[in-house]
Amino acid sequence: MKRTSRYPFYDVMNEQRAWDDHTRHIVNSRVHTEGEYVFLMTVEAEMLRSWCSLLMDDNRPEVIQYVIDHFDQSLGSGKESQRKPGEPPLSQLVRGGLHALDQACQSMFTEHFFHLEAARQKQIMTDISEGQALPAEIWKPVPQTAFFQKMLSLTIDAYYSHPKIWSDIGYAGPAYPRGYVRMDLGQLDPWEPKEDTKKNEA
């Protein structure tokens, strides 16, 4: 799929000279992902690759791999910021949901989720988001809407912290330590990107 941006010539990584060492290390680690998992199994990672690509309408390998790595770290840490009463722990919810997803696809289509056509994948995701995924007996142990919401929040958290996405949306990266100078509405500091108005007029 072709990506479009209002800032096609902007690369936030060109601003890293203005960041402190700690920030520079963190942001660069998001660009250079390992793909070595401590929690996820291979089939789970590949299901996530298809799921997250469709969810964000983006299949750039380096971006989606970072999202998967974020899943792996979050699930492997055993930590979560909040959980609704009655919901299973994050790692249990996501693993159980991915297991049910694989079982359901194998049962109905004799294929893994990531082998299905995009239209069918999207329909399955929609059904899960509404708590209506089939076969019902396979999904019975999994709170489907909670599973979908966790998948959504983890994906968004990771996706919008990747430097390529910062560049796409015109975010110039951490302001510390240089800070902002021009604070009025509509004003930009010299190091912030300017929208390509010619591209939008075309």
Results as ranks from 00 to 15, higher is better:
residue 2 K to R: 11
residue 3 R to M: 12
residue 12 V to C: 13
residue 15 E to W: 00
residue 19 W to V: 03
residue 41 M to G: 07
residue 41 M to V: 07
residue 44 E to W: 12
residue 47 M to V: 05
residue 47 M to W: 05
residue 47 M to L: 05
residue 49 R to C: 09
residue 50 S to N: 11
residue 51 W to N: 07
residue 56 M to P: 04
residue 60 R to W: 13
residue 63 V to E: 07
residue 65 Q to E: 15
residue 67 V to D: 10
residue 70 H to E: 05
residue 75 L to H: 05
residue 75 L to V: 09
residue 76 G to H: 11
residue 84 K to T: 03
residue 85 P to N: 02
residue 85 P to W: 00
residue 88 P to D: 06
residue 91 S to K: 04
residue 96 G to L: 04
residue 97 G to I: 13
residue 101 L to E: 09
residue 105 C to D: 09
residue 106 Q to A: 12
residue 108 M to A: 08
residue 111 E to G: 00
residue 115 H to T: 02
residue 118 A to I: 13
residue 119 A to K: 11
residue 122 K to M: 11
residue 123 Q to M: 10
residue 127 D to M: 07
residue 129 S to E: 14
residue 130 E to R: 12
residue 136 A to S: 11
residue 141 P to Y: 08
residue 144 Q to Y: 02
residue 145 T to R: 15
residue 146 A to C: 11
residue 149 Q to G: 00
residue 151 M to G: 07
residue 159 Y to W: 07
residue 160 Y to I: 15
residue 164 K to D: 08
residue 168 D to Y: 02
residue 170 G to W: 10
residue 173 G to E: 05
residue 173 G to P: 05
residue 175 A to G: 14
residue 176 Y to V: 15
residue 187 Q to D: 14
residue 188 L to M: 12
residue 192 E to S: 09
residue 194 K to I: 12
residue 201 E to C: 00
residue 202 A to G: 00
